[in-house]
């Protein structure tokens, strides 16, 4: 690469690495939030059943 290989490869590494890191972090955050939402949904259902038993 005409003596410029360190500059060129670092540019591509930083560029693609940056995009990859953001993509992985975004997908992991989405999965974690969806998992938490499912858990909360289950607990909410259980609690509403408890509440109904208390009320009636």
């Amino acid at each position: 690469m005409g003596g410029y290989a360190p500059f060129i490869w670092s540019s591509y590494g930083i560029g693609i690495g940056g995009l990859l890191v953001l993509a992985v972090l975004s997908v992991r955050t989405l999965w974690a939030r969806e998992r938490e939402l499912r858990l909360l949904g289950t607990r909410q259902k259980e609690n509403s059943i408890d509440l109904q038993q208390h009320l009636y």
């Binding site: 993509a23 975004s26 939030r33 969806e34 938490e36 939402l37």
Partner: peptide, 12 residues
């Protein structure tokens, strides 16, 4: 992906 994630955060 991030819009879905933000909606999930609001729902949580």
């Amino acid at each position: 992906v991030r819009i879905r994630s933000e909606i999930a955060a609001v729902q949580v």
